[in-house]
Design a protein around this nucleic acid. Structure first.
Length: 505
RNA sequence: GGGCCGGUAGCUCAGUGGAAGAGCACCGGACUUUUAAUCCGGGUGUCGUGGGUUCGAGUCCCACCCGGCUCACCA
């Protein structure tokens, strides 16, 4: 440990020892607060509001004379010798405390010498207003609630070191108000999402994270091992197939908000574990789901931010429904000039893409080529919320074919702020066709060495053979939705503890 | 994995091959309405790590570690 830091900690350890030697417990179990700091300030302000019927002076006097008990972390200390000002912060806000030696008593007052910025304190007293107009507790008694041994980041600039912000997020939350705000928005957005779905009759369920086969999406799973069962298990890469089993079991509207895990690259848009919402609605198709997505996302924005028009970088994204609807074919034709339907095999499509000047790796499957066109020539430009509809069947092994267009499926993806935020389709419920689609994916995997293709989930096929109603399914990237709502370009800014390399020691 | 950028005091950051700095925090002192309190005194350091070049390296070179951005992959 650096010498300087050791000294800072030693100084606090010495204070801790002095506190103990006075017979004071520096880590008591509880402190009964009468108010949060925010409530206290509101109380004082309201006592000044006129027109309550009661003479203002009496209301004011009664409320001001009330003794309050507040608690929080000391974030600043301004000592005046025989008096000291503290800033005390709790989860609701901040209040100033004023401690005078003569009001507290010399012996108790001297205890303050062993308090540091970062310690927790409980204060008891009446509210008053300082000369500068700040509502302040005039402290008659105080209690040490917790001694901190480590120095906090500097008050003015906060914590800027990005690595430290992620590794010690608690310091980031303490130092940077807007970081705290981002995670409040995240929490409120998920809460609003639940309210929306519950109002529509969906029930929340939980399905296994540990699975013997990681299916339901195209991704590489994390592998682990169960010792008692002596079997290899995988962390789920999607919740899809289990939720459909529940539709088969008669829950007509289900959803799960949960963590899924993909063993792939880490970037500003990808964390190995991330949160999805998946919902399934019996007797609905992808048009119904589209309507639900635009209603849900705009509802969440309105609930959490109070507006459907949100800032994203220098742009404004207007989430008010209805959202623009385009077919995938139209969008890609417009973005790249390539009509993928005119090139039904991988090699001719690859050649056509090369003609436009885009550089693609050799040997990509047809599906990957279309996906490449989408993510490179279309997605970055979809700033305003947009649905792209009708995807090639080759890209969508779990979606139902579009009547009259055998090569397309009833699928859409929703984009906003240049990101994909939702993926949905009319679910394939024909068990024989589902088996063929899985087998086709296996063939693609063998042919292209494509490790991410679906595996055949026999247990799911068995369930499907018992009959699944027509169903509209949806997946929403919750982290990306929060990025959109908070205007962040990096997923690490909306995940409290993003994955970082483990530092030895 | 490739490219670019960064890592100096607890925090935020300066630092031109020639004596390691500032502000905040901290320590000591003064101060009973301060609020980025103020005033006086104190610099507390593995310059990410390890090599190399040089009379001399925080600074130049090489390798490595960690992070950021970006490309590839992906949602």
């Amino acid at each position: 440990m650096a010498q300087r830091k050791a000294e800072l900690i030693q100084s606090r350890l010495d204070k801790l020892q002095r506190i103990r030697s006075r017979g004071v417990n520096p880590y008591p179990a509880r402190y009964l607060c009468s108010h949060t700091t925010q409530e206290a300030i509101t109380l004082y302000r309201e006592s000044r509001v006129e027109g309550s019927g009661i003479p203002e002076q009496i209301v004011s006097r009664a409320k001001r004379l009330q003794t309050l008990k507040l608690a929080g972390r000391i974030t600043a200390m301004r000592s005046m010798g025989k008096a000291i000002f503290l800033d005390i912060r709790d989860g609701s806000g901040k209040v100033q405390a004023y401690l005078q030696r003569d009001a507290i008593g010399e012996e108790k007052y001297s205890l303050l010498q062993d308090f540091d910025i970062g310690d927790f304190i409980g204060v008891e007293g009446e509210l008053f207003e300082t000369r500068a107009g700040e509502i302040t507790v005039k402290v008659s008694d105080f209690t040490m609630l917790s001694k901190s041994l480590q120095p906090l980041p500097e008050k003015w600039h906060g914590l800027a070191d990005v690595e430290k912000r992620y590794r010690q997020r608690y310091l980031d939350l303490l130092s940077n108000e807007q970081v705290r705000r981002t995670f409040e928005v995240r929490s409120q957005a998920i809460s609003a999402m639940r309210r929306f779905l519950e109002k529509r009759g969906f029930i929340e369920v939980e399905t296994p994270v540990l699975q013997s086969l990681a299916a339901g999406a195209l991704a590489r799973p994390f592998a682990t091992h169960h010792h008692a069962l002596d079997s290899d298990l995988y962390l789920r890469i999607a919740t899809e197939l289990h939720l459909k089993r529940l539709i088969i079991g008669g829950f007509d509207r289900v959803y799960e908000i949960g963590r899924i895990f993909r063993n792939e690259g880490i970037s500003t848009k990808h964390n190995p574990e991330f949160t999805t919402l998946e919902s399934y609605q019996a007797y609905a198709d992808y048009h119904d789901v589209m309507e639900m997505v635009e209603q849900m996302v705009s509802f969440i924005a309105k609930e959490v931010l109070g507006t459907m028009r949100i800032s994203f970088g220098e742009l404004t994204v207007d989430l008010s429904p209805p959202w623009q609807r385009l077919t995938l074919r139209e969008a890609i034709k417009e973005g790249s000039g390539v009509d993928f339907e005119a090139f039904p095999d991988a090699r001719s499509l690859e050649a056509e893409i090369r003609k436009t000047g885009l550089r693609v790796e050799e040997g990509m499957s047809w599906g990957k080529l279309v996906d490449y066109l989408l993510s490179h020539t279309v997605e970055p430009n979809l700033i305003q919320p947009t649905f792209l509809m009708d995807y090639p069947v080759k890209l969508s092994p779990l979606a139902k074919r579009k009547p009259g267009c055998d090569h397309l499926v009833e699928r859409f993806e929703a984009f906003a702020g240049g990101m994909e935020i939702a993926n949905a389709f009319s679910e394939l419920n024909d068990p024989l066709e589902q088996r063929e689609r899985f087998e086709e994916q296996e063939r693609v995997r063998a042919l292209f060495g494509d490790e991410e293709a679906e595996r055949i989930d026999e247990d799911f096929l068995l369930a499907l053979e018992h009959g699944m109603p027509p169903t509209g399914g949806l997946g929403v990237g919750v982290d990306r939705l929060v990025m959109l709502l908070t205007g962040h370009q990096s997923i690490r800014e909306v995940i409290l503890f993003p994955q970082l390399r483990t530092v030895p020691g």
